[in-house]
Simulated assay, not measured.
Amino acid sequence: MSRPVKLLSVGALTLDTILRVDTLPAHQGKFIASDAVQIASGMAASAACAARRLGAAVSLWASAGDDSVGDQLVAGIEAEGVDCSFVRRVDGTRSALASILVDAHGERIIVPFYDRRAQTDPEALPADLSAFDAVLVDVRWPGAAALALSAARAAGSPAILDADTAPLDVLKRLLPLASHIVASEPAARIVCGQALDPETACADLASRTDAFVAVTGGAAGSWWFDRSAGFVRHVAAPRIKAVDTLAAGDVFHGAFAVGLAEAMPVEQALRFASAAAALKCLRFGGRLGAPDRAETLAMMATHWPDGPKA
């Protein structure tokens, strides 16, 4: 394209303390980490940073406290080249924190803290969303997500919902507003109300909306409902040995949003997202492992050699 696509990412911004341990604790005690990092992160923020590394011009709309942690968060995301001028700072509130343990197999335990006073509904959008080629929202700031999804659809831009684990009422509020829904398996099950396999959950979720629907399954790949054919299709994930799965979903969503903004065919956008997420899993440090565009395209060429070039 003649210019980078413009993406707005809406939702969580947290200070993550990530500790690497041999095994995840099964009992109380003291455990010594072999590695550690502290970074500005959160679902929307991590997706924004990933999209920026993939070549998009990205703005973040998030809410933080008026504390020193908030200063650290904004500085950390701006250092990635993401525009943080829309980040709201709420007087008298605390910025979000998360403590995360990652084991030798890349699996993790996440314990977040959100000051709900900082997550109150915004009164208005921070900008004219017609200037953006796509809008991506998560479920952590529902009021802002609802405004952004509605405005993006009105502007005719992809309105993408990262549907992750959240209360059912939040998911029900946001699902009808999205043009594209990419749900985790747990979120799909919360909505569908059954312990379904990902393929069945994808079909069930697609029957409840007119939006594009995909369900992600980590190393098992992703499933998407092809409305023209009337059935679910599968995109296999590249086979890798995971070091750290933290933020892989965020990287997936950020890459998928870039793909849609660049008008990639949807299956190609899912492959682009799968390749970026797989590369992230090879590196410890959460979103810090997000790849650049050249790495992602090389991964795609290796795993889908007959596919079109992104």
Rank of each mutant, 00 (worst) to 15 (best):
residue 3 R to C: 09
residue 4 P to W: 06
residue 14 T to D: 05
residue 19 L to C: 05
residue 21 V to R: 10
residue 23 T to H: 12
residue 23 T to R: 06
residue 29 G to R: 01
residue 33 A to Y: 05
residue 37 V to C: 06
residue 41 S to P: 06
residue 55 G to H: 14
residue 61 W to H: 11
residue 73 L to G: 02
residue 75 A to M: 06
residue 79 A to C: 10
residue 81 G to V: 14
residue 88 R to W: 05
residue 91 D to K: 15
residue 93 T to W: 01
residue 104 A to F: 02
residue 104 A to V: 12
residue 104 A to I: 06
residue 105 H to N: 07
residue 108 R to S: 13
residue 110 I to V: 15
residue 115 D to Y: 14
residue 122 P to V: 09
residue 124 A to Q: 15
residue 129 L to Q: 05
residue 129 L to E: 04
residue 133 D to A: 13
residue 133 D to G: 11
residue 135 V to Q: 11
residue 137 V to E: 10
residue 140 R to Y: 03
residue 144 A to Y: 13
residue 151 A to F: 12
residue 151 A to D: 13
residue 152 A to D: 07
residue 152 A to C: 13
residue 160 I to A: 09
residue 163 A to S: 12
residue 167 P to S: 00
residue 172 K to Q: 14
residue 176 P to L: 10
residue 180 H to S: 03
residue 180 H to Q: 08
residue 185 E to P: 14
residue 196 L to C: 08
residue 197 D to V: 14
residue 203 A to H: 03
residue 203 A to N: 00
residue 208 R to C: 05
residue 212 F to H: 13
residue 214 A to N: 03
residue 220 A to H: 12
residue 221 G to T: 08
residue 221 G to R: 05
residue 226 D to L: 03
residue 230 G to I: 05
residue 236 A to Q: 13
residue 237 A to Q: 02
residue 238 P to I: 08
residue 241 K to N: 12
residue 244 D to K: 02
residue 253 H to Q: 07
residue 257 A to R: 01
residue 257 A to S: 07
residue 258 V to W: 06
residue 260 L to Q: 07
residue 262 E to Q: 15
residue 265 P to R: 07
residue 270 L to D: 00
residue 271 R to T: 00
residue 280 K to M: 05
residue 281 C to H: 04
residue 282 L to Y: 07
residue 285 G to L: 04
residue 286 G to W: 12
residue 287 R to E: 01
residue 290 A to H: 03
residue 290 A to I: 07
residue 291 P to S: 05
residue 291 P to N: 10
residue 293 R to F: 10
residue 295 E to W: 06
residue 297 L to G: 02
residue 304 W to G: 02
